[in-house]
Design a protein around this nucleic acid. Structure first.
Lengths: 206, 206
DNA sequence: CTTTGTATTAACAAAATTGTTAAACAAAAA
DNA sequence: TTTTTGTTTAACAATTTTGTTAATACAAAG
């Protein structure tokens, strides 16, 4: 055979990603995925055996992406507050580029303990590292009298709260697919991004 | 007929609420609901005709509850900042008393445009009123030089972000049903509530 | 005590959904 | 060319899930 524009397996994966991300596992239909991929639905079972298998392939990748977005990088050679501001913005931009991600991941762990554990497993090492790194810097800055008293956990949770909810709320206020609302959406995101940075920085002020 | 401890219809509704809230519409099974209610599963169709009908009964009630939680009440006869602090706390307490609510409501609107519209329809009048009321007071306070420049929308979104995400995150970090983690959960909520109030107030400081 | 309407049950039907298989097919290897 | 290997298809099977119905019980009204 060789390589078509996209291989059958890849076409199925792409379609699966689209369908699972927009409907979630339980509401997704394997036949719809196959139809969208333009292949006989037996192929789906040929390559992935079960719906759950196919889902896990997508889910694990998305969990990885989601968890990784919380591994905020603190740029060296920047004043502390600039670092934080940059981290907030980077995280915000990532989420707006992947607007379905939070609802998808958080929705799937709702009832399924196994998926929840997979998220935790992906999340803990990242957050753990962040907490340790930040905690050190934060304590120094507090001691130097540069910022108000806080903890790495609260700071990370605050950033996550503001950024994640900003994209979730956008789904309520706008029709994300609609071409004509793109301008409004863009403006909303611009304003929210600015707001979130401000809130985080102000909270660190003495 | 007579009235048992709970009528059949009510037993079904109670079970439906439990199952739908924990699994969502698509993953829920009508037979499971019937079993949990302790009735023959034909009764479910007898009283509610379809799964969707039953779901809508639950969903609409929960949407009402969720939407209403954003109709923050500003207590008269309190300084502005005290009002805001109280609103944040009240909202936070409501959410921790209904910890499954946000994920349930937000999860269900993910793919279903009709449900999304029902949420918006419930949300708009509340939020609209709030925006108007708050906007006035906020403008006054800004003019008086009491608070920093902001908008009602940003303020409401910030409160919603911090509070909603606090309960969503609790599902990741803790096993909410587990008896033994109750103490940790309580402490987490106490800390988060305090943090959220602080963040909101600090952001209003000049 | 008969009638009437509602509630309940078990068994069944219909539909939807996932998963399987045997046979056809195509490409590469021998 | 023939064989072999992996891919694809259509048809089918199995299961799950929702929904229906006919028979029955049962209480209240007349």
């Amino acid at each position: 055979m060789g390589n078509k524009d996209t291989t059958t397996e890849q076409a199925i994966l792409n379609a699966a990603e689209t369908v699972f991300l927009s409907k979630g596992y339980a509401a997704a239909r394997t036949t719809e995925i196959a139809r969208m991929a333009g292949v006989n639905h037996a192929m789906l079972h040929y390559y992935f055996r079960t719906k759950e298998n196919l889902f896990d392939t997508v889910f694990d990748q998305k969990v990885e992406l989601f968890a990784n977005s919380f591994a905020f990088i603190l740029e060296k050679n920047l004043p502390f507050l600039k670092k934080i501001a940059l981290a907030v913005e980077t995280h915000f931009d990532f989420l707006t580029s992947n607007p379905q991600l939070p609802q998808f991941v958080l929705g799937e762990i709702l009832s399924n303990p196994d998926r929840k554990n997979r998220l935790i497993k992906a999340l803990l090492p990242r957050i753990g590292t962040i907490f340790e790194q930040w905690e050190k810097e934060i304590k120094q800055e507090i001691k130097k009298g540069n910022i108000a008293k806080t903890t790495a956990r609260d700071l990370v949770l605050n950033i996550a709260s503001l950024n994640v909810f900003s994209v979730i709320a956008s789904h309520i206020f706008f029709d994300m697919e609609q071409k004509k609302s793109q301008k409004e959406i863009h403006q909303y995101f611009t304003e929210r991004k600015k707001n979130n940075v401000t809130v985080i920085l102000k909270n660190l002020q003495l």
